[in-house]
Structure formats: C-alpha cells, structure tokens
Simulated assay, not measured.
Amino acid sequence: MKPTTARAVHGVVAVVAAVAVVWQLALIVNGEAVLNESSRPDLGVRLARFVSYFTVLSNLLVLGCSVVLARNPLHDGLRWRLVRMATMVGITVTGVVHWFLLRPLLDLSGSSYAVDKLLHVVVPVLALVAWVVAGPRGQAARPQVLGALLWPLLWSALTLLRGAVTGWWPYPFIDVDELGWARVLANLVGVAVLFALCGFAFVAADRALARRSPRAA
C-alpha cells in the first residue's frame, strides 16, 4: 500500500475514534446513563468515571496511534511497538467482551445506542482492518505480549480498589458486590487469557502478512 493511502486509512480510524470518544463525553456531561445506571452523580464524578472505562481508554489509544500513523505510516521504535501491541490487543478485547458479555445486558436507544456501537464495534473493526491493510508490518513480537498485559492488569487492580472503596463498578462482570470476589477474579483471569491469546494471534498474523508483503516489512 502506498504511504499516502496508508495515511488516509489511519486518518479515517483517528477521525472515527475521536468522534466516538467526544460524543460519549458529551453524553456524559449531559448526564446520560452508562450501562443503565439509575443515578445521576455530580459532573466531577461522571467525568472521573468516564476515564475509568476500559472501553474509553482503549479507544483513546487507538486514536493516539492512528494519529501517529496518519503522519508517518512506517513509524517504529521499541516503545512504539509495545504501545501498538497494547492498543491492538486492548481494542480487540474491548470488542469481544462487549459483544459476548455486555451487549446482551444493554437496552440503549438514540444517541446512546449509536455511540455505544461506535466505541465497541465500529472503532475495533476499523482498527483491525487498518492494521491488516495498512500495517506497519513486521513490528509484532512475542515479548510484547507480556508488556501489553501490564496496562489491563493495572486497570483491573485500580478498578477493584476503587470499587471496594466507592461501591461503583464500571462493568457487570467486575461487580464484586453482585458476583463476589471469587467470580470476579475468575472473570478477570479469563479476560487476561483472552488478552494473551489475542496478542499471540497478532504476532502470528503479523509474521504471515509480512511474508506476503516483504517490502512493507
């Protein structure tokens, strides 16, 4: 793929991710419910909770990486490779967990429904498509998988700590008050395994795609 085309592809992902995050932020500021919450806390609390969702964080990572690649589609570096792996694995898990665990529990309509689909379906799909068709190739390696697990593990620890103190849980599958510690920890182990499997899948796919496009690698 020509660099100009690759920049355009990543640029589209960046624009869609930005629209999704800003739109969700606008709904939060307006007091819209998230995951059918019945209460409407103060704005400061709503904003703090907004940046506490893994979905929002993974979409922000996609936005940041896409902006970098829209400027230079062959951007590289050791730290970049780790961030890129964490981003791709994070947004993939966001889509999978939403589809299988959260989607059946939601009853959204209007703007809330639209932005939910942007964050959980459209951005993950676009990010994956852009990774496949525009690369850059040859940057994924197995050691990055362990590093990519660090931020979701940190997010999980902070979320459990805050939930224990405040009683607020961003997702039903991590609600200790409802499910108990044993069930929640089992759920998180399952998600961690999913992260690792996705990471190794990205490594294998990157190698296969690099062999098909040696010049891009």
Rank of each mutant, 00 (worst) to 15 (best):
M1L: 11
P3I: 08
A6V: 06
A8H: 04
V12N: 03
V13P: 11
A17N: 06
A18K: 05
L25H: 05
A26S: 15
L35E: 14
S38E: 14
S39T: 13
P41S: 04
P41Q: 04
R46S: 11
R49W: 10
F54N: 01
S58R: 01
S58M: 12
N59K: 10
L63W: 15
N72H: 12
H75G: 03
D76S: 14
R79L: 15
V83S: 09
R84E: 06
I91H: 03
I91R: 01
T92F: 00
T92D: 09
H98T: 04
P104M: 15
L106P: 03
S109P: 04
V121D: 01
V129H: 02
A140H: 08
A140G: 01
V145I: 10
G147E: 13
A148N: 04
P152A: 02
A157E: 00
L158R: 01
T159N: 05
L161T: 06
G163P: 07
A164F: 08
G167C: 06
W169N: 06
P170R: 11
I174P: 09
E178F: 10
G180M: 10
V184W: 09
A186K: 08
L188I: 07
V191I: 15
A196C: 09
L197S: 06
G199P: 11
A201P: 07
F202C: 02
A204D: 11
R211T: 00
S213C: 07
